[in-house]
Design a protein around this nucleic acid. Structure first.
Lengths: 187, 187
DNA sequence: ACGATTTGCCTAATACCTTTAGGCAAATGC
DNA sequence: GCATTTGCCTAAAGGTATTAGGCAAATCGT
């Protein structure tokens, strides 16, 4: 028989696609093997197991998200940068719900330290350059931003804003605006 | 043999305890049967299956959370009420991480409509009575509050603030404060 | 080009979780 | 005290995860 050409990287990418189709929690070694038309144990040459697969998808999503954020922030400052960062997360979550869920997968300390999570923190601080905040307020502000973005996006993804007026977009715009005000008048 | 005295309610409660011990995603019909010292199929007289179990734990957690919030809000208004509501969520999540995760379990529209989720929305609006907001701003504000609370709590639970200074508590206080300012000067 | 080595994917086997079907015995009701 | 209901059981089938061990395809040295 011809070989399928599996690699760890290809499995992580296919896993990410699968996550967007069926949800991150339903990404299984079995489903991935089916997708490649190979037997389940074949994947174990490339992956240590389910947890390893999930972690690799998480790392992939974090990278994509950080790349997108970095591009969105280039040449922007202040409220523009704030909205660009928020929109990056929100749009990514809506286009790639499974990958967004993967990005929230808990990583052990060592893995997290080597992940693109670090760049996310740097990008958040880059946005705050437009707001002139000293420590420890800068850290508080990073956490506020992260909480607001992640909170809104995950509630929206869960459908919390679906069947009610006004639409989520208008709340999002209003929230970005109030976040900008908060950061400008942090004192 | 004597009977174990299983009931749907008892299973949901034990499931909630199990969730806090091992994580909501690891709550399984098998583990629950072990906990009661009965065979796995015995639970199927009381539960339709795993999804049903998860849903019942979610409903239980939503009730507890709404009860706690209602009690915390009694006799409070303005910033006090805001902080009381936020603290209710945060404290519950730290004391009962599995149940908090359960409360985030997606429910179908019908189940959600009959759940304590409805009371949560009412309680959020009750807090906003202290801030004099008309629609649609009130809805935007409910969503901002929900996003901020849920975002912070879930990031904290995931350990996002663990190994860095300053501690999560000081950021939380700062965030509640800025949320209060935002709501007071919503225009 | 060809044999030796590496490597990729396979089958077999074990273990656990889920769910359905059907049975016996304990509780309940007359 | 007997009949009915009901609670928990065993049996069985299907899916996922993981390990062990084998064969064949790709790769490499000569």
């Amino acid at each position: 028989m011809p070989r399928a050409g599996l690699t760890t990287e290809a499995l992580a990418i296919a896993g990410a696609e699968l996550a967007d189709e069926v949800g991150f929690e339903h990404v299984t070694v079995s489903a991935l093997a089916r997708r490649f038309g190979v037997s389940v144990p074949s994947l174990y040459s490339h992956l240590r197991g389910t947890e390893d697969l999930h972690t690799r998808i998480a790392l992939l999503a974090l990278e994509e998200l950080a790349d997108g954020a970095a591009e969105a922030l280039a040449g922007r400052a202040g409220p523009d940068a704030l909205a660009a960062l928020g929109d990056t997360y929100r749009d990514y979550a809506r286009e790639h719900p499974g990958r967004y869920a993967a990005a929230r997968h808990p990583l052990d300390a060592e893995t997290a330290a080597g992940s693109a999570g670090v760049r996310h923190a740097q990008l958040a601080r880059a946005v705050l350059r437009g707001y002139d905040l000293a420590e420890p307020d800068q850290t508080h502000a990073v956490r506020l931003m992260g909480s607001t973005f992640h909170g809104f996006v995950s509630l929206e993804l869960a459908g919390a804003f679906s069947h009610s007026e006004p639409d989520a977009q208008s709340s999002w715009a209003r929230i970005l605006d109030s976040l900008d005000h908060t950061l400008r008048s942090w004192a």
